[in-house]
Nucleic acid binder design. Structure first.
Lengths: 251, 251
DNA sequence: ACCTGAACACCGTTCAAGT
DNA sequence: ACCTGAACACCGTTCAAGT
């Protein structure tokens, strides 16, 4: 027993043994329970009464920690994997729940924008989405790409609310500029400035998911695509065939 | 004349006077001409033979610098604002050119993912997109939201190529996990793992833009939306009306 | 008004040294 | 095998001091 200094250790009775799990879970609780607004190895180390160097036994670098933390977060929220209703409703419920969870924790929303959850929880989310989309009639190949699109939208909207405050500083001048810099030069922009800078991401979210689902259903992934180096040169097929008719749901 | 030390000043004849413009342009050339892979006030300051503190006379903070640099970049590439062909082709050409430019400069692709170009060049890009979409029959309100979706896709794809190398480290373990952790648990994922981790963003880009455009055309923005706090609770309208028939282009 | 150096409060990562 | 302190090479931002 350490007798040299008599300090209550009630809050941290014995120094917790380090492990990948405690590192990830204290990192996560730093971002959710604590008010920490960003993740850093040093903060996690401090919370564990040690130095940053100690974490490198269990984690390769910050990026890996970020992935693990995000996956742990995804695992901690309860997502409606087994929903009811038609497949579209279930996709929306799933993504909406994920969005809601991210929005409650700005630091996680930030994480999600730049990191992919590397772990079973992230995989399960993707698996479920794939299954729903394929059930809905999307081709497997299309579904694979679509999942990225859908999840990117979630993280974008989640981060938007976040940016809202800091982006206000960046956007406010832009907004003033729009009014003054001649509404003759950017008439569309001027007319729609309210809609563009509305920022109430929640409204847009429902619409965006519908856009994506409708688009995904009506845009078959062409089987064998010739690889182009630059998409710039990719001419659009003029008489583009629209694919499998919308078969919206099957409730 | 300074006689104390005889050092050739050919490369930097006289100390350039500081100004917002030289700061932004040297920052930009650091990211494009030079091989710098990230932007920092200190690097820009060093390139200008001064200290970081000096820049604060012209720039409020890093975030503002980032916005200015990104806008300067957008202004430096030549985008096909006046294209030919139907509006869809023009949207694709515009976004494709932007994507191509970002892909050539990973540092800029990185910037674009987290920053909005605050300046005339960014505004012009948005204005042009709004105009094309509205010309194509998208409602103004829909167009306002759609622009965000389209530009987000560009920056996401641009950043993907970037992440590719560093994400390989994160994804490689995940990929191995998929194979081993039971393909019984995530059958969809296992079957589609190649498509998911394909990473050749250019292929996906054309498809994604089509998805977005088709989706945007077939998903009217409902005029008066009741504001919900949480999208989680937002039940889908069961018999959802699909809007204005696709009127694809008008060439 | 503009520029500067120094300081402050942070980062991630490495490494020799301890147990 | 695990942990540690110290060091290295970075960050953004502030501030008193100079011109």
């Amino acid at each position: 027993m350490n007798q040299r200094t008599i300090v209550s250790r009630r809050t941290r009775p014995a120094k917790e043994a380090l492990s990948r799990d405690v590192i990830v879970s204290t990192a996560l609780s730093l971002l959710t329970a604590e008010n920490a607004e960003s993740l850093s190895l040093r903060k996690v180390a401090t919370a564990l009464d040690t130095g940053a160097a100690s974490l490198y036994v269990y984690v390769a670098n910050v990026e890996e920690l970020r992935s693990l933390v995000l996956d742990a977060f995804v695992g901690s929220i309860d997502l409606p994997f087994q929903g009811s209703g038609d497949w579209r409703a279930r996709v929306k419920a799933l993504l909406g729940a994920y969005l809601g969870a991210l929005q409650q924790h700005p630091a996680l929303a930030d994480l999600a924008r730049t990191t992919v959850p590397a772990g079973p929880s992230g995989l399960r989310l993707v698996e479920t989405l794939l299954d729903l989309l394929i059930t809905g009639g999307v081709s497997p190949g299309g579904a694979a790409w679509a999942v990225d699109l859908l999840l990117a939208e979630v993280t974008n909207v989640a981060a938007e609310r976040n940016v809202g405050s800091s982006e206000a500083a960046v956007l406010a001048p832009a907004e003033r500029a729009i009014d003054s810099i001649m509404q003759a030069e950017f008439p569309r922009l001027h007319a729609l400035r309210e809609d563009l800078f509305s920022g109430s991401g929640s409204d847009r979210f429902g619409w965006a998911i519908d856009v994506l689902l409708n688009g995904i259903l009506s845009t078959p992934r062409t089987p064998a695509v010739k690889k182009h180096q630059s998409p710039r040169t990719e001419a659009p097929r003029p008489g583009q065939k629209r694919g499998s008719r919308n078969t919206p749901g099957n409730r």
